[in-house]
Structure formats: C-alpha cells, structure tokens
C-alpha cells in the first residue's frame, strides 16, 4: 500500500492516529506556553489571571501589525519572524507587568475576590482594545512560513514546517525556564515567594520585584505563544483569548497549578484530548470534552497530576 522509502505503517488507521497525535502534541506545546504564564502567576500570588488569555490575543495583534510593517519594509519572511519573536514577548511582558503594577498590586491584601474580579475587568478592557485593533471579524495572519510536509509523502504522515517551528521555539523556552527557576537567584527567590511570601520577605527577598518579574516572564511566554499561534493557526480574532486562555488554564490546573513541569504535561494532555476528541468523537464536542476532564480532575484530584508530588509552587 505504501512505498518503502518512508516509515511504513500497517494501516491507514494507524497513520491517521499518529497524525492526530502530532497535531495534539503541537497544540499542547502551544498551550503550554500560555499555561506557564497562568501557573507561575497563580503559584506566586494565587490569582487566576483571567486577563492572560486576552494578553495573548493582544500579542497576536501586535505581531500581526509589526509583521505587516516589517514585511513591507524588508520583504524577508525570516527577518520578520525573528523580529516578531523578539518584540512581541517584550510587548506582552511589559503590558502584563504594567497591569500588575496598576491593578493587582494595590489588591495584594484584599479578599481574593477583588483581584479575580479585577482580572475579569482587565480581560474585558483587553478584549475591547483587541476589538478596535483587529475589528470584529477574524483576520488572517500572513503565512510567512511555507507549509510543507517534512516527512516523506508516501509515509502518509504529516509533520509540517510549522509543527517544527512550534517545537523548535517552545522546547528551548521551556527548558530555559526550568533551568532559570531551578538555578538562578531570581528563580530561587520566586520559589521562596511561592512557598511563603512573608518568610521570603523576612529573608530579604524583594517580594514585589519577584512578583513583577513573574508577570514579566509570564507575559513574555504569552508573547512567544502569540507569534507561534499566528504562524501556525493563521487566523486570529479578538475573542480568541478567552477560549485559548481557558484551555491553557485547564492545562495548568490539570498539571497541578503552580507547577511548571505540570503545566507542560497538562497542556500536552489537553492538546491530545482536544485533537483526539475532534478526530474520533466530534469536533463540536471537543471543547466540552476538555472541560469534562477539567471537572473530573478537580473533583477527584484537585491538586492535579503533579500537584501533590512537588511542594514547590512556582
């Protein structure tokens, strides 16, 4: 049935299954970047940052605008992508930190409902900005990377250039983040603050600076995710933040909120569930499946998959 030049599989079913898994994996990696922003912020200030998904959405529009301008100037897709990957995280990081400074910082000692409601408010504001930035209709993100299957055609498998891009960008970022949190002094300060802010402060850690840094890093990760999302999915709209943010947050909860490897694992599971459910059950029910899993996890194992094992909460 198939040639022998590529990988040979027994049946078309298996090929289909593997293709679905590849899609799930890349989607999962994408969600992981967003999930990390949620999980780090939650680990430190115990806030479900509802605005994070919309920050990601604004990042997409920023990348789109910037990409359009750079493309017109240089005409080189590679330079455009490189610049987008540099500037968008910076934009999102500072926007996220700015929101923390102006909105959440004053509410650190307030009841937990206050920052949460504020976050919903910020999310509304971001959505309105996105509505004016991109209009009420979905817009196309320029396909700067030629979509090409990297595997031999006759293997029946699909692993495209954009899939590779997702892996190539996200994997180093996540490894870098893990090393950063494990071995730098700021990373150590983050873990200390997550465990006990008061004790951390008594040890001479500037907690507010640590929190600001957390928002910066979380925002930067969302910014990277925006560019990748635009290049991979190619359609963006002002309402995309909510849904993607929710998937990412589900991933963070699934992995055990506050736990970095947990968020990545959770995101991969979510990505897999989403694409398997789309393929084998019904695409229209995929979202519901994700939330059924979320509820099941919360009910039976509220600490998430990796939550109980590790005590560190960064």
């Amino acid at each position: 049935m198939t040639g022998l030049t590529g990988l040979v599989f027994a049946s078309a079913d298996t090929q289909f299954f593997i293709n679905i898994c590849i899609t799930g994996l890349t989607t999962g990696f994408l969600y992981a970047l967003i999930a990390l922003g949620y999980t780090m912020v939650y680990g430190i200030v115990e806030l479900i940052n509802f605005a994070h998904g919309d920050l990601f959405m604004l990042g997409c529009f920023f990348a789109l605008t910037l990409g359009g301008a750079v493309m017109a100037l240089t005409g080189s897709p590679m330079a455009t992508i490189a610049l987008m990957l540099l500037a968008t995280p910076v934009f999102c990081a500072f926007l996220n930190m700015l929101v923390d400074l102006t909105v959440y910082k004053a509410l650190r000692t307030a009841p937990k409902l206050a920052p949460l409601v504020s976050a919903i408010g910020v999310s509304f504001v971001f959505m309105n900005i996105g509505l004016f930035w991109g209009g009420s209709q979905d817009v196309n993100f320029p396909g700067l990377i030629e979509e090409r299957n990297l595997l031999a055609e006759d293997s029946g498998l699909q692993f495209t250039t954009t899939d590779l891009l997702v892996i190539l960008v996200t994997a180093p970022v996540m490894i870098g983040l893990t090393i950063f949190v494990k071995s730098t002094s700021l990373g150590k300060a983050m873990r200390a603050t997550a465990q006990n802010p008061v004790a951390a402060q008594l040890m001479g850690i500037n907690v507010n600076r640590v929190i600001a840094a957390t928002f910066l890093i979380g925002g930067a990760l969302a910014g990277i995710a925006s560019v990748i999302y635009g290049l991979k999915i190619k359609t963006i709209g002002y309402q995309m933040g909510f849904q993607n943010g929710l998937y990412a947050f589900t991933a963070a909860v699934l992995g055990g909120i506050g736990n970095i490897p947990g968020a990545v694992l959770g995101a991969i599971v979510i990505g897999m569930v989403y694409s398997l459910a789309s393929a084998y059950i019904d695409a229209r029910w995929a979202t519901a499946m994700v939330f059924v899993i979320l509820i099941t996890i919360l009910v039976f194992r509220p600490t998430g998959l990796l939550g109980a094992r590790t005590r560190e909460k960064v």
Partner: peptide, 26 residues
C-alpha cells in the same frame, strides 16, 4: 466608525468599572 459608537465601548467601560470598583469601593 466603530470607535465613535458607544455600543462598541461597553467591554472597556464594564472592565474599567470593575477594576476601579475593586480598587476604590470594593
């Protein structure tokens, strides 16, 4: 024009109202 329509600004206004409310009159 969209930005000259009040109905296009409602998310912004609710959002700001929530944020300001939480800050100053929770």
């Amino acid at each position: 024009k969209g930005y000259l329509k009040f109905s296009m600004w409602n998310l912004m206004i609710f959002g700001l109202a929530l944020v300001l409310m939480m800050r100053f009159r929770s």
